[in-house]
Simulated assay, not measured.
Amino acid sequence: MTGLNDPAFFDRYAHEYDVRDNPDPTAAVEFLAALVPDGGRVLELAIGTGRVAVPLARRGVAVEGIEGSPAMLERLRAKPGGADLPVVLGDMADVAVDGPYDLAYLVFNTLFNLPDQDRQVDLFQGVGRVLAPGGLFVVEAFVQDLRDFDRDQRVATRRITEDSVQMEFLQHDPVAQAVTYQRVSIDAGGTTLRPLRLRYCWPAELDLMARLGGLRLRHRWNGWDRAPFTADSRQHVSVYERV
């Protein structure tokens, strides 16, 4: 399972990424577009197949990106307008680009793909380095509910038909704040495994990482619709400002 920590790990999912049940990016695109000043420069960390970046660029926003998966980047390049976006192939935690940027963003829990706290801090510090003074960093992430686990494990059936089953196996490491997933699909064609490991962070931990990167929390919402973040929230969209 060591490949789970490789930035190119998501090559294995590139062929299906845009056809699976990923969230509609419209609300995220509208939220982000409203934060970009006229002529502003924008960076997406883990740009992937351009699910957010391509429609944002269609609005006239100058979007650039970093992506660790060559296969994801190939999918982006094949989309109309995707080949026009400047993208650096590499580990997003290194933030190996030259600023300054007016906005950087990291969506769909992707911060948690980094293997440990050190690399997550590296990312915040790198973003702080390339943001212009007053520039913004937007992070979308879930809030882990520990009630999901029984003795730090969970098994769930996601879908059953007369000739197939999809199940999910999770193992929680409370010390590392990590969850290792194995999504298993069994049908007439055989068995397919879709592993994933996430190192989650609590919102307060993210705020401290931001401070280490020269950023401060400006807003935290429950989602892209700017609903209030509360004790019952299971996700958040946090906006940090370069000080």
Rank of each mutant, 00 (worst) to 15 (best):
A83M: 03
A93W: 00
Y105W: 11
D102R: 08
R129L: 12
G60V: 06
E64Y: 08
T110N: 10
L56N: 04
L103M: 15
N109V: 09
I66G: 10
L114M: 06
R77T: 12
P115N: 09
G65A: 13
R59Y: 15
L111F: 08
G65P: 13
D91G: 05
G81P: 07
R58I: 10
L136E: 05
V88H: 04
D94T: 12
V63L: 14
S69T: 08
L85D: 03
L123D: 00
P70I: 02
A78E: 15
F112T: 03
T110W: 01
Y101F: 15
A71M: 14
S69H: 09
D116M: 07
G65V: 05
G99K: 11
L56Q: 00
V138L: 11
D122I: 02
Y101W: 08
S69P: 03
L131A: 02
L89W: 04
V107F: 09
G134N: 09
F112E: 06
K79L: 05
P80G: 05
L73Q: 08
V138R: 00
G82W: 04
A96T: 01
Y101Q: 08
D118A: 15
M72T: 02
G135I: 02
K79E: 09
V121W: 03
R77G: 13
Q117W: 09
A78C: 08
A96K: 04
P70F: 05
L136Q: 09
G99D: 03
I66P: 11
R77Y: 10
A96H: 07
P115K: 01
M92K: 01
L123R: 00
D94Q: 13
V61L: 09
A78V: 10
G81H: 07
A93Y: 00
P80C: 02
N109G: 06
G128N: 05
